[in-house]
């Protein structure tokens, strides 16, 4: 005879949720290592040199140190060219050369923003493809379960008929 199941059912209990959050917190603060999801693995761990470079560029330009240093340099530039006494003023008011330098930065920042955006949309594409694969797999499992339950119902009905025949 089949024994009653003694194992606890597999579902996300409170302990499991805490474990998941703990792991996520670790991954959150230490990126680019030890990914579990195949799309993350493909995107971060199997990226090409160009892709890594694009990620680095986006990470450096899109960071507080970059923004703060840029601000400091700008303020210093304007200060030196207006009030400095012992240094030659290389770009007096209205700071046309500063304008060129900043335009240069903006000219490169635009394409790098798009580079990062393209990479993200590529990731989104892979994510959806992976989700479609996974949902196929889930559907197969559900079909199997359904077939099994139908079989079970059929057997139960047979038992019912047997019992009715016995009683009648």
């Amino acid at each position: 005879m089949a024994q009653p199941s003694t194992q606890a059912p597999v579902s996300l209990g409170a302990d499991d949720k805490a474990r998941v959050v703990h792991r996520l917190r670790r991954v959150h603060r230490a990126p680019a290592t030890d990914h579990k999801h195949p799309v993350n693995q493909a995107h971060y761990e199997d990226s090409t040199f160009g892709e890594r470079l694009a990620d680095r560029a986006a990470a450096v330009i899109g960071s507080w140190p970059f923004i703060i240093s840029q601000t400091a340099l700008m303020v210093l530039w304007v200060y030196v060219n207006v009030w400095a006494i012992f240094i030659q003023h290389w770009d007096p008011y209205p700071f046309i050369f500063l304008n060129l330098v900043l335009s240069f930065q903006a000219t490169y920042a635009g394409p790098i923003v798009l580079l990062a955006g393209n990479r993200q949309s590529q990731k989104d594409r892979i994510t959806l493809e992976h989700a479609a694969d996974e949902s196929d797999k889930g559907e197969q499992h559900i079909t199997k379960i359904l077939i099994e339950i139908k079989k079970n119902t059929e057997l139960t009905l047979q038992i019912l008929r047997e019992l009715e025949a016995e009683g009648g």
């Binding site: 792991r23 996520l24 991954v27 959150h28 990126p31 990914h35 579990k36 999801h37 799309v39 993350n40 995107h43 971060y44 986006a58 990470a59 330009i61 899109g62 960071s63 507080w64 970059f66 923004i67 840029q70 930065q105 903006a106 920042a109 635009g110 790098i112 923003v113 990062a116 955006g117 993200q120 990731k123 989104d124 994510t127």
Partner: peptide, 20 residues
């Protein structure tokens, strides 16, 4: 530009976390 990248990086990080 940098602020755009800053917020984009943050969004990418969230996407990474969500997949995990």
């Amino acid at each position: 530009g940098p602020v755009l990248l800053l917020s984009g990086n943050r969004q990418a990080q969230k996407d990474r976390l969500r997949l995990e």
